[in-house]
Write a protein that binds this DNA or RNA. Structure first.
Lengths: 344, 344
DNA sequence: TTGAAAGCGCTAACAA
DNA sequence: TTGTTAGCGCTTTCAA
């Protein structure tokens, strides 16, 4: 931008110093709204004007202020995502795909982590609603009724994921945790296993899978199974320690279902370190099917969740809603699959 | 909110229907600016007024519109982060800590992924600057001079990370990739290794570590080493395949440095599958020190990067700058450490 | 301690 | 196709 251009730009007491659409319009010799149209809906503007505006933009290095645009149009082009944690790798693929799909459609992602804390979730919700995003992605079902009420009152499209419920706030993309527990139990029983144990983290969905597994096994008359809750420590190490505890209580255990692949890898590692043959003496099943477990030795039998698919579908739903379209069938069960590999 | 309250709220042609500060003020019987002060700087308001405003907020369920506030005050309380990808687990801890630290300080994180693509990075930058965030976190050094110019012109505080340069855009928190290559080479040579190979992904920083490793080894007169570039496929599987290729070219290889822990796990897995003794016949060194590699069998020797520390420091810098404070020593070398475990 | 006025930078609504 | 006007919901500035 040359000095001559600069002089044409009006100063005001409060302006932030950045180039505005008004500056561009003045330089191009048109009204601000015309410059706005040249930027946003170039088809509505004559080629002549379009060129003048584009020139002015180029000369000034103008970058539209989306905050102001968002305020004026009530469309922020922002989507908020709430995740327990991104170090829990099972959620990462969903967020990656959600983010990429949204970006292609011209939306930005705001990321919030609850750390599995209800209190934190509430603060996050307040912060999110305050930004007036065009949509909200939730990992899991919103349990707190206060949270549900706030979301409903905000009028912002919401997609709950990673679980099923008959009463979603709005849209839903998930799968059944109790079905998973039952199916894994059936799978292991069909393999002739009889002495079961569970290793799970202390979150509600993992507990639900565990409870369903336990019920299914109990219904078939097997003896009480050992349940090891590792709480918040979702590491490979806690999987190793869990197996140690299990073996000291029930040395004849022959099948273990873990609430994550990482815990399962821990159990597997400890088993190998102790010379326990997997799967001959002990079957191990994980959850999540994170990429590398298919290529380890031995490969891990696990429950596959299509995280990418959830992210992509959620992005599609939210973008459609943001654009005022009705979403057809906004409740989707994406299911799961038990992927049989070496460890069970 | 009861019907009586509702009637007091003025309707306008354009308003979005949500409760505004103006509604709250009217209900409380004060001016909007007074209600604003009651919300943001309660100390500046009499207890009596404070109570009336809080009551009105409670009755209406008012949530402040941060978009409008941001526009008026030129402080968005938004920080943008640019990452190559979050499925590359080495970046996840940094983002998690960055996000959590920012949230504590009242800031939200906007996440953008480049997928290691320059073109994508440019589009991302445009989208980010358009939101006028109070700060920008970059993974790596901004290589493109166009990008540097835009960032500089935007006036937004920037922290580049994960690398060092004598000419950062603004602030910098990183470590030296060429030092890492050199030190790992020295480490392996000191262990008496002579036949080296490299497995690295096709990004610039990994290539720099590899080049430095290669130089160091060459300076000591060892023969040309085999370099396997796996390109964009940073999986355990590509590590396994890389070892196969290396062995077919140089069967007597006795040390391999990988550009990520996941690739190293792949090499390790393939070695074990082939009955190659690690570390007796083959030393393997990874990069990143992601949590679980310390608890596998065998444990992985790797280069530790304190990702959490980078995230926390970056958040500190950005928040300080956003609040108009000067940042003391905004260029930090966080270093690295070779963590010796079983695999080398 | 409280308030009136005037924006922040943009777009919806209406008009020509 | 282009422009005028009046906001979006909040905060800065200045005044009382």
């Amino acid at each position: 931008m040359n000095t001559n251009d600069k002089e044409k730009i009006k100063k005001s007491r409060r302006n932030s110093g950045a180039i505005t659409l008004r500056d561009v319009a003045k330089l191009a010799g048109v009204a601000p709204i015309t410059a706005s149209r040249a930027v946003n809906t170039p088809g509505q503007v004559s080629p002549d004007v379009l060129k003048k505006v584009q020139d002015a933009i180029h000369r000034t290095g103008y970058v539209p202020n989306r905050v102001a645009g968002g305020l004026a149009s009530s469309r922020s082009r922002l989507i908020a995502a709430v995740v327990p944690s991104i170090v829990v790798s099972v959620f990462v693929e969903t967020i990656e795909t959600l983010n990429n799909t949204l970006f292609e459609a011209g939306y930005q992602l705001m990321l919030g982590q609850t750390g599995y804390s209800a209190e934190r979730e509430e603060a996050l919700l307040e912060a999110i609603i305050g930004r007036r995003p065009d949509g909200i992605f939730l990992t899991g079902i919103m349990q707190s009724s206060k949270g549900r009420t706030r979301l409903l009152a905000s009028g912002i499209p919401v997609v709950e994921t990673w679980d099923l419920t008959p009463t979603p706030i709005d849209m839903l993309i998930g799968f059944s945790h109790s079905d998973i527990g039952r199916e894994v139990a059936n799978f292991l029983m069909a393999k002739g296993r009889r002495r079961f144990a569970l290793v799970h983290a202390g979150d509600e969905r993992a507990s639900r899978r565990a409870a369903s597994f336990k019920n299914t096994v109990a219904q078939r008359g097997f003896r009480e199974i050992f349940v090891d809750n590792v709480g918040a420590s979702r590491s490979l190490k806690s999987g190793r320690e869990a197996l140690s505890r299990i073996l000291s209580q029930t040395p004849d255990v022959d099948a273990i279902f873990c609430s994550s692949d990482l815990l399962a890898m821990g159990v597997l590692t400890e088993a190998m370190a102790r010379g326990i043959k997997v799967p001959r003496q002990l079957s191990i099943v994980g959850f999540g099917d994170v990429p590398y477990v298919a290529d380890m030795v031995p490969t891990l039998t696990t429950v596959h969740i299509n995280g990418s698919d959830i992210g992509r579908k959620a992005a599609g739903f939210l973008v459609a809603r943001a654009q005022g379209l009705a979403v057809d069938k906004p409740i989707v069960d994406v299911g799961f699959a038990i992927v049989q590999r070496d460890s069970a």
